[in-house]
Design a protein around this nucleic acid. Sequence first.
DNA 1: TTGTTCAATATGCGAATACGTATGAATGTG
DNA 2: CACATTCATACGTATTCGCATATTGAACAA
Lengths: 101, 101
Amino acid sequence: MGRSPAARTVWLRALKEARVARGLSQAELGAMVGLPQSHISRIESGAVDVGISTLLEISRSLGLEPVAVPASLVPAVRSLLRAGSHDGPPRPAYALDDDDG
Amino acid sequence: MGRSPAARTVWLRALKEARVARGLSQAELGAMVGLPQSHISRIESGAVDVGISTLLEISRSLGLEPVAVPASLVPAVRSLLRAGSHDGPPRPAYALDDDDG
DNA sequence: TTGTTCAATATGCGAATACGTATGAATGTG
DNA sequence: CACATTCATACGTATTCGCATATTGAACAA
């Protein structure tokens, strides 16, 4: 497979939670992005090391924009995310936590 | 190849700039992450759709933490990044801009 | 200028892996 | 049971990835 299974589980968990929170099935999400349901399944389960372009498309279709933050600023960004999750209507806000290795 | 070459160019540009800004060669960066120089080359040139796990390792080795931000909060995060780029050592702070596609 | 050397980046090829199509398993509803 | 819905797996093709090698570019000498 790819390189570090652990390193990507956090992303995958966040994406799956975002999908479920929006009431989308794997097939529906796949249709939005132009991917087969089977691949969404493998991505979420961590069975494959998905390409960055696909990850970007999936994230954005779920309303999440990936951003590279300098490590020193991560806490500030994280608190900003928590504070800002009050506005939109159905929308869950997801940050990527680093609770694995 | 993967799916959307344009979608990933922003990431790649940011990573390459971060690498160069820190005075690292492709070989040195590769050694830090356990990748051959040849692969770093293809990643930066956009010739391959790199796997997410590798992208995470590279980003973190350069001091950049990928975070999924709700689209509505991107402007706030971005201004935070601009404001906070004073502290670090040689200090390049990189956000992912969406100035393509 | 021409040639040499060294550091950095790019490319060909085989082996490993991701991806798409088709299908199956599991669960729920009448 | 018949049918629908959602997610998971098998197999073949396309792409990535690592190794070895080639190419590029800058600095210097004669």
